[in-house]
Amino acid sequence: MAYQFDFGSLWEYRGVIADGVGLTIRLTAVGTVAGVGLGIAGAFARTSRSPALKAAVGAYVEFIRNTPFLIQLFFIFFGLPVLGVKLSEWQAASLAMVVNLAAYSTEIIRAGIQAVPKGQIEAAEALAMSRLQIFRHVILGPAMRKVWPALSSQIVIVMLGSSVCSQIAAEELTYAANFIQSRNFRAFEVYFVSTGLYLILAVGLRALLKLVGWSLFRRRRHV
């Protein structure tokens, strides 16, 4: 007997799905804002003159980039309480996203910083600007502009990666899908639909980031 597809039975769970999508979006938003923010700080730290600070940030970046997100998540959610740091599912998931994206964006932004011509930095030094002022006003803008496409791709990857947060019962989209599947046993339909939703989220997020990049880095016409 051929399998009868039944997408209709998902309709009654639309609220659950919407909540899941909402949480996925919130996780991504928190991860992006805090992660990229920390990434900027990390990239600045890597230009520091202190070898210890440079090495510490470098080790952090390499460790995160060479271990699976799922393990980082488990470590934060299950491991940290041993040290007395107890986090809710949502907090642990957000923290994992931030920690992960911070490492990647540190590395990506660092590459952008290295592409800023040395002469511009010397010109700023000759204008008596401090290291922080130079970073903030001379280096950061052009560097971010240069790496924005790479950063955007990484943000999308992290958004998609958030699906494993279901494993610590953070109630994002995948968790919602698993939940529905356990109720109506329509695994294929549920996962098919949620995959489609992720695809839409990815396409939408990419478009949004493009727009953000455009508005951040466009030349302002006023004099």
């Binding site: 699906s163 294929f188 996962y191 995959t195």
Partner: peptide
């Protein structure tokens, strides 16, 4: 696009559950 725009976990679920259909 399908593989780069969706979570690996979903791809895995679809393989696992889809083929059993």
């Amino acid at each position: 696009e399908l593989f780069q725009g969706t979570p690996l976990l979903m791809q895995l679920f679809l393989c696992f559950f889809g083929l059993s259909l």
